[in-house]
Amino acid sequence: MTAAILDTAALGTAEGRAALIAAVAAVVIAAADELTALDQAIGDGDHGANMKRGFAAVAEAAPTLAEKPWPDLLKGVGTTLVMKVGGASGPLYGTLFMELGKHLGTAPDRAALTEAFGRAIEAVKARGKAEPGQKTMLDVLIPAHAALAAGADAATVKAEAFAAADRTVPMLATRGRASFLGERSIGHMDPGSRSSSLIIAALADALSAG
């Protein structure tokens, strides 16, 4: 299977872009309870509610955002998350999308997406003062980016994102609220890794559906 990423003609239309935004938002909103449960285990338990609030606002803005070219659309998604999420994941996901917008051209292809995603990850690292291996969203974003850069199809990128989230279970958290628990953070999936994997999976599904 060679389901290409970003080859779907639908993304050339505002309707297609609005559907993509709505699909990603719906996945995050539907996972709110699961994200909350993960965060209650090793954090402050607000990740589900925060992400739901942020992506509900994104979904509401989807028709307007979808009229804009990719850089402005992504900047709008990022700004909305920054203003609405209300936790550290707001600036972190906000930075991810805003930086994607900054580096992705108006007619992105796979190479442009790979390059922009890599730069956006660097910005998330700086924003969170984090590195891979600390049981954070970076532990999903970086492997997913590596799969994309290696030429994987959408289904493989999605599978790698889920597998990477699973690999955070045995990790010791050294960044974020879970780090306060020390060794008790071991044995639980990082909530930010889970939400990152869900977003990547939703994007992969949407981008390979056409």
């Binding site: 402050d44 607000d46 509610a49 203003m83 209300g86 936790g87 600036p91």
Partner: peptide, 11 residues
């Protein structure tokens, strides 16, 4: 947070 729960609001 923006809904008045525990958290912070950038605005």
């Amino acid at each position: 947070d923006p809904d008045g729960g525990l958290g912070t609001d950038l605005a």
